[in-house]
Amino acid sequence: MDLLNSFDLTVYHALNHLAGHHPVLDAIMVFFAQYALELYAVLFVVAWFALPKSNSDKRHALMVAGLSGVLALLINFLISHVWFRPRPFVTLAQMHESFTKFIPHSADASFPSDHTSGSYAFASASWGKTSKWVSWAFTSIAIIVMIARVYVGVHWPTDVLASFVVGLVSSKIMWKLSPKIYPLTRIVLRMFRMGNVSNRSVAE
């Protein structure tokens, strides 16, 4: 069963009907819709080495952010196997309504959005925990991804809104588990000959 409602239809069409009319905007949305998780991986590496070598606390926050993204994807996997929601291009084709499917995508579960959940898990885990430029970059990408997944036609608006919640919950859980992550952070820091994580940052 699909929870189709006027909000989803209205917002979906408002964004999706823009696709195909603005080449530059199309290119931006397609890029973020398809490669957000890879972009986060690149930014993770850049941030790791760009931070001052002695700043271990903020690198620990990056570790928590990365693991928050993984947890968000696991939560999505469980949700999609409990309740299957068809993709917009499947439902709208059956309804004989217009839509633009701007990127290739399988007809798997639409709810929630892996890209959006992972993005907001990364972003929210970094809030107040690492450098502002890292948090701003992570959050800006997450916002664009949320819009882009609807724009290109592969998610309903409520898919990405629910994914925002999944991302927030995942980051909260991982920060609660922060002391358990400490040994992994310490191993990675030692590999790159960087300082240890302080007790303060682990306890937060």
Rank of each mutant, 00 (worst) to 15 (best):
Pro179Trp: 10
Ala50Val: 15
Ser126Lys: 08
Phe31Met: 07
Val90His: 09
Ser98Met: 11
Tyr120Trp: 15
Ala14Ser: 14
Asn5His: 12
His22Asn: 11
Ile187Leu: 09
Ser110Thr: 15
Ser54Glu: 14
Ser110Asn: 12
Lys176Gln: 04
Phe138Glu: 07
Val90Ile: 15
Leu18Asp: 02
Met174Phe: 01
Val160Ala: 03
Glu204Leu: 12
Ile187Thr: 11
His22Val: 13
Phe192Ala: 02
Val82Tyr: 11
Pro112Leu: 08
Met63Tyr: 09
Lys132Phe: 11
Phe102Leu: 14
His22Met: 06
Ser126Gln: 08
Leu168Pro: 01
Leu62Ile: 03
Leu189Tyr: 04
Ala203Val: 05
Ala65His: 00
Leu67Glu: 00
Leu74Glu: 11
Ser198Asn: 01
Gln34Trp: 00
Phe44Gly: 02
Arg85Phe: 01
Met63Pro: 00
Thr130Ile: 04
Val165Asn: 04
Asp114Cys: 09
Ser56Ala: 15
Gly20His: 06
Phe7Gly: 03
Ile187Cys: 02
Lys129Gly: 01
Lys132Tyr: 13
Met29Val: 05
Asp159Thr: 09
Phe99His: 04
Arg193Glu: 03
Phe102Asp: 04
Leu189Glu: 09
Val197Leu: 13
Trp83His: 05
Val145Tyr: 03
Met174Ala: 02
Phe77Asn: 07
Leu161Gly: 07
Ile75His: 10
Pro179Ser: 09
Val188Glu: 02
Glu97Met: 14
Tyr182Thr: 14
Pro23Lys: 06
Val166Ser: 07
Asp108Arg: 05
Pro86Cys: 10
Val24Asp: 05
Ile103Asn: 01
Ser131Val: 09
Lys101Tyr: 06
Thr185Val: 07
Thr139Ala: 10
Ser163Leu: 10
Leu18Ile: 04
Trp48Ser: 00
